[in-house]
Design a binder for these strands. Structure first.
Length: 589
RNA sequence: AGGGGAGUCGCCAAGUUGGUUAAGGCAUCGGAUUUUGAUUCCGACAUGCGAAGGUUCGAAUCCUUCUUCCCCUGCCA
């Protein structure tokens, strides 16, 4: 898909182009896997022109916002003959779980990306670097760049100062390195309870950048880690761990979101210190920040998504209304549509809102090309062909044929029968037509798609005056595909399903989850603007050929939109379809 | 208030060593095609680049001032 989509320049591509042009990475070595300066020095010239990484914390499900980052990082690596490392940033044992690891890996592969490149897998875990990180912290302490602080969390907070007030040095700040080192070892050995002490980088308590006011780099957590078990009771903080992870993996461009901009000075400070100590070597990785995705009508906060699931506003993480990758997938999104969306929105440093319709547009553009067509009636009203018996005989079934895809003959034909009674959409009949209406109304002609032109003669009503059936006559010799098909010109085309041969199916009509473009704008509780009609379930009639539908297959239900056979509940015994997105409708329903 | 960022068409977004008519996409609006009011195809769509000054033969690009919005005071990431 990217072959036909011209690549649009962005600030990251410009940076990479400049780096490459300057031969900035010419001396890079690759030790065959993540490692310190010595191990890479002993390796080979790095076969990867650049290295990026996608580093989720395995504490939740991936969503459309992550998709932007995934497409960016894996996409750049692909385009520049580099590699993107799949890395779990699992430095907080209390929040993480293997279940999330599995779902994340699955989501990325589904999106169309992988981490095997240059003959090896690049699936990494921050927890594999705990040993090095511990050594790095020891080095920092020994070199006078870090210390063990025994202030309480509250004392630390107060002494950090605020935006206008410089912080105050901790009373432990200048304790001898040997004392800090001994305490750090005691921390590791489980001699101290959670929260009793912490290792802090020694930088500048008066820095205007609060992240430089002696940030905590190691804390005590007597917790079982999903990968390292009980091997450790001290764990590195993100601030400290992330730059090291990047360096050990020889990442060239460490791309993260805007809120980490203030963290970059520490990122550079840390790597420079470790390079001084010989633990790391140039060229060191650099951090670049881009604006995360803001999508209207969508919420991506982990906490809020969790709330939607836990409080049953939706039916799980893979509910088709959820912006999670599993939700989008079940809704009928394709990986290509999501990739197209990411290409269209671009990458910048300006914090913007993308309208939900852009996502829908990309989806339609992808599905239009590949979805098989089918005729389905979602809101059935019976149509009686009153001259059927005299024309064909009551029990006759008239075979009709239609292309699987109007622009792709090679996809073949589908066959179904026209019978004396068919289902049509209730909205396709108006006893008194509104201006511009071209479908069925008394004395008007329209075509039953792929069948005959019919002339509406009236309707039947119940005691309350509700229309219960539409009456029409077939106009002879107008069957689609026959020489006389165009002898009568009509403006309206009606989709239909044989009343006697059509199959019934459960169809879920999904709509956006919220009624406001920015559900949590201005501190509003997003639950107050949940769309009560985000899911409507109808029993529809579908053409007989859909009987053998495979779960996960996408269709265009003609004149309605794109639908997908639900991957969990659609089976041979029960047809279940999810509406992925409607067709564009310039007439307005 | 201190620090860090961002403001180019309705929504995104190229363009920044200053130099012809400010890319492109989405949306929108015309028109053609169409057995999906879909698709497709043609065409239209910023004398303007947050604002005001200034430098210059020439500025979205340089300078000055102003303005709006976003992020930062977890032993989360």
């Amino acid at each position: 898909m990217s072959a036909e989509t011209p690549v649009v320049s962005n600030f990251l591509r410009n940076i990479i182009d400049a780096d490459l042009a300057a031969n900035k990475f010419a001396s890079r070595r690759w030790g065959g896997g993540p490692g310190d300066a010595a191990s890479h020095a002993a390796g080979v010239a790095d076969p990867a022109k650049i290295r990026t990484r996608f580093p989720p914390e395995p504490n939740g499900y991936l969503h459309v916002g992550h998709a932007k980052s995934i497409c960016l990082n894996f996409g750049l690596a692909r385009d520049y003959d580099g590699v993107c490392h799949m890395r779990f940033d699992d430095t907080n044992p209390e929040k993480e779980d293997q279940e999330y690891v599995d779902s994340i890996l699955d989501a990325i592969q589904w999106l169309g990306f992988g981490w095997d490149k240059f003959g090896q897998s690049h699936l990494y875990h921050a927890s594999d670097y705990f040993g090095f990180m511990f050594r790095a912290a020891e080095y920092l302490i020994e070199a006078g760049h870090a210390y063990v602080d025994q202030q309480t969390a509250e004392e630390m907070r107060v002494n950090r100062g605020d935006f206008t007030t410089p912080g105050k040095d901790s009373p432990f700040r200048n304790r001898p390195a040997a004392e800090s080192l001994a305490l750090f070892h005691e921390m590791r050995d489980g001699k101290h309870p959670d929260g009793s002490m912490v290792v802090r980088a020694k930088i500048d308590m008066a820095s205007p950048n609060i992240n430089m006011r002696d940030p905590a780099i190691y804390r005590i957590r007597h917790a079982e880690h999903h990968r390292t078990g009980n091997q450790w009771c001290v764990y590195p903080m993100y601030t400290f761990a992330h730059p090291i992870e990047d360096a050990l993996e020889q990442i060239t461009h460490s791309i993260c979101t805007l809120e980490f901009e203030d963290q970059r000075p520490f990122y550079d400070w840390l790597l420079a210190r470790l390079a001084e100590g010989g633990l790391l070597a140039d060229p060191l990785p650099h951090q670049y920040e881009f604006a995360r995705l803001n999508l209207t009508y969508v919420i991506t906060s982990k906490r809020k998504l969790m709330q939607l699931v836990n409080e049953k506003y939706v039916e799980g993480w893979d509910d088709p209304r959820m912006p999670t990758i599993v939700g989008l997938r079940r809704r009928g999104f394709t990986p290509e549509a999501i990739q197209l969306f990411c290409e269209r929105i671009g990458v910048t440093k300006s914090d913007t809102w993308i309208d939900y319709s852009v996502l829908e547009g990309a989806l339609r553009d992808d599905l239009e090309e590949k979805a098989a067509r089918a005729m389905v009636v979602l809101d059935p009203l019976k149509l009686k062909l009153t001259n059927w018996d005299t024309l064909f005989g009551a029990n006759h079934a008239e075979p009709c044929s239609a292309p699987v895809h109007p622009h792709h003959e090679e996809m073949g034909k589908r066959e179904f029968n026209l019978t004396r009674e068919v289902w049509i959409e209730r909205e396709d009949f108006q006893e008194v037509p509104e201006k511009g209406f071209r479908r069925l109304f008394p004395d008007n002609m329209a075509r039953l798609k792929y069948g005959y032109v019919i002339k509406c003669t009236g309707c039947e009503k119940d005691a309350e005056g509700n229309v219960t059936a539409v009456l029409a006559e077939i106009v002879p010799d107008t069957k689609s595909g026959t020489p006389g098909a165009d002898s009568v010109k009509v403006k309206g085309v009606i989709t239909w399903v044989s009343a006697s041969e059509g199959l019934s199916a459960e169809v879920r009509l999904y709509d956006r989850l919220f009624t406001e473009a920015q559900p949590d704008a201005g501190g509003r509780n997003f639950l107050e603007v949940l769309n009560p009609d985000s899911k409507r379930v109808v029993t529809a009639y579908v053409e007989p050929g859909l009987a053998q539908t495979t779960a996960g297959t996408s269709f265009q239900f003609e004149r309605h939109g794109y639908f997908v056979a639900d991957r969990k509940e659609c089976g041979a015994d029960r047809l279940v379809f999810n509406r992925t997105v409607t067709l564009k409708d310039s007439w307005g329903k």
